[in-house]
Design a protein around this nucleic acid. Structure first.
Length: 478
RNA sequence: UCCCCGCUAGCUCAAUGGCAGAGCGUUCGGCUGUUAACCGAAAUGUUGGUGGUUCGAGUCCACCGCGGGGAGCCA
């Protein structure tokens, strides 16, 4: 079937005309490029402009002969300006680039006052660039970050699509306050200066959420998992990929108040399958990004972290280490290290413990399984030993926990006991429990923090620098 | 939220309680098919905020704000 559309604006850039395409093609005449000036070097008889349109890390070198152009026009071709150039794409006589654009026609689309334009060609700190979030996208580093980000997102969708998974959009607003994954942002249309109160009864004096938009308290989601389980028990294999919100006052290079999470949920899947699938998933998407964004990853390896490429190759080619929580505790106990937090069976692994296992002992991702039931969520399937649950955490060097998952408790009576045992109200989980009454099935899944994976892929140090617009306590600029 | 460190020119950083500095960027000039070019000159400051100690505070003290590192919570 052929598709026809009305003619597209003659200046719109489409595939084949990005700087990326031009640089990987052949010399030819009558080429038009649009982009933003990164730097400019002047001689008496020739002027070199580095032009970037975001399509690749490399700039296109535009060569301008000042004699052929109006001096006032060239004066406005400054760092940061947006220009359009038409000319001849020719092989370059100098080292540094194979092709360059000999300018025949130059138009300044948007000027940039060089006295105030904040980006220099020298390196800037990530902190400074974060303060100019509206311009940091023009920098080399953030160009590569966001190209890798789009490639990674596509790789994830492709992977699940090829594996036959259903993509489910779980709700962003939820009225279940039962997810237990941390502090939640409230969603309300009540007038905060004049909050309605309950006038009578046991709830007297409390906020009257009956008058609120949803008729009860509502929140931004902290996880789509419980809803994904609904879909897994109808579509077999499903995944979510969407924004997630945590109102925790976390101030670390690894936490955001708004982040993106991938949560596959698979029916007829036990913890072993879950674990191997997580490994297959990670390897597949990393390999794909390595293939698609080779030049961006080279940039990270050169400028940000010189171990990134080796680490990624190692992940793709190695077999992840699998150990039980009990074995992990034993390794830590006999390590001879002194720990800030003492190691004992029953307490959760601390950052220092995870780093020791991934960075010192195994030097690659480690999957730890079968955690004590007391330190894990109610929905994780109980093991027969009565002490542990079928939970797994994928720990990565430098990043720590990158994936957390489990086989879910599919037995109605056991789940009900666990809910009560943890002091939760079974009535809040009525639909979650009913899934175990009508055609229940063993199932498992995991959650992957998208930005944490970005940290791993890029070698970037702060999670605020791998998301377009970071939201953290006290900060929601841009 | 807790512990530690920091905040000085557009950026990165100096300055023993005693005249506010450099490099880069910017502007101007020179030179060169240049590559984070090179050479010369110039302009650029409410030292994060408020209060205090002192003859005198960028420097010492208190509180606040912001940033970084570590920790907790977690993905």
């Amino acid at each position: 079937m052929s598709i026809t559309v009305k003619e597209i604006s003659t200046s719109m850039i489409l595939r084949g005309n990005y700087i990326r395409d031009l640089l990987s093609g052949d010399a030819r005449s009558d080429v038009t490029v649009h982009g933003w000036v990164k730097t400019r070097r002047d001689s008496k008889d020739v002027c070199f402009v580095q032009l970037n349109d975001g399509s690749c890390p490399a700039d296109l070198q535009v060569v301008i002969s000042p004699a052929n152009f109006d001096a006032d026009l060239l004066r406005r071709v400054t760092t940061g300006a947006c220009i359009r150039v038409n000319g001849q794409l020719a092989s370059s006589p100098a080292a540094g680039q194979a092709l360059e654009l000999q300018a025949m026609e130059v138009k300044v689309i948007g000027e940039a006052d060089p006295a105030t334009y904040p980006l220099q060609k020298k390196g800037h700190t990530m902190e400074f660039l974060r303060d100019i979030g509206h311009l940091r996208t023009r920098s080399n580093t953030f160009g590569s970050v966001f190209r890798v980000r789009t490639s990674l997102a596509q790789a994830i969708h492709s992977f699940f699509h090829e594996e036959g998974f259903l993509y489910v959009h779980t709700p962003i607003i939820t009225a279940s306050d039962c997810e237990g994954a941390g502090a939640m942002f409230g969603v309300s249309t009540l007038d905060m200066l004049n909050v309605p109160r309950v006038n009578e009864g046991a709830q007297r004096g409390q906020v009257d959420f009956g008058q609120d938009f949803f008729g009860k308290p509502a929140y931004l989601t902290v996880s789509g998992q419980l809803e994904a389980e609904i879909f897994a028990l109808a579509f077999t294999n499903v995944y979510t990929f969407g924004p997630t919100f945590r109102a925790e006052n976390s101030n670390t290079p690894r936490h955001l108040a708004e982040f993106w999470m991938i949560e596959p949920e698979m029916a007829f899947c036990d913890l072993q399958d879950d674990m191997f699938f997580a490994e297959k998933f990670l390897k597949a998407i990393i390999a794909r990004v390595m293939d698609e964004c080779a030049s961006d990853l080279e940039f990270f390896n050169k400028r940000i972290d010189n171990s990134v490429l080796q680490t990624l190759e190692n992940v793709v080619n190695s077999v992840f280490e699998h150990i039980t929580y009990t074995e992990a505790i034993a390794l830590l106990e006999k390590s001879g290290q002194t720990w800030e937090f003492p190691v004992s069976w029953g307490s959760d692994l601390q950052s220092e413990h995870e780093r020791y296992l991934t960075e010192q002992v195994f030097k690659k991702p480690v999957i730890v399984v079968d955690y004590p039931r007391e330190i894990k969520a109610f929905y994780m399937r109980a093991n027969d030993d009565g002490k542990t649950v079928r939970a797994m955490d994928v720990l990565a060097p430098r990043i720590g926990e990158i994936i957390g998952g489990s086989q879910r408790e599919e037995r109605h009576d056991v789940l009900l006991n666990r809910i009560t045992e943890q002091g939760l109200d079974p009535a809040s989980y009525w639909w979650y429990l009913e899934l175990r009454k009508y055609g229940s099935a063993p199932h498992a899944g995991f959650g992957l923090g998208f930005e944490r994976l970005m940290l791993y892929l890029t070698g970037m140090k702060n999670i605020r620098d791998v998301i377009p617009f970071p939201r953290t306590p006290g900060t929601a600029e841009f």
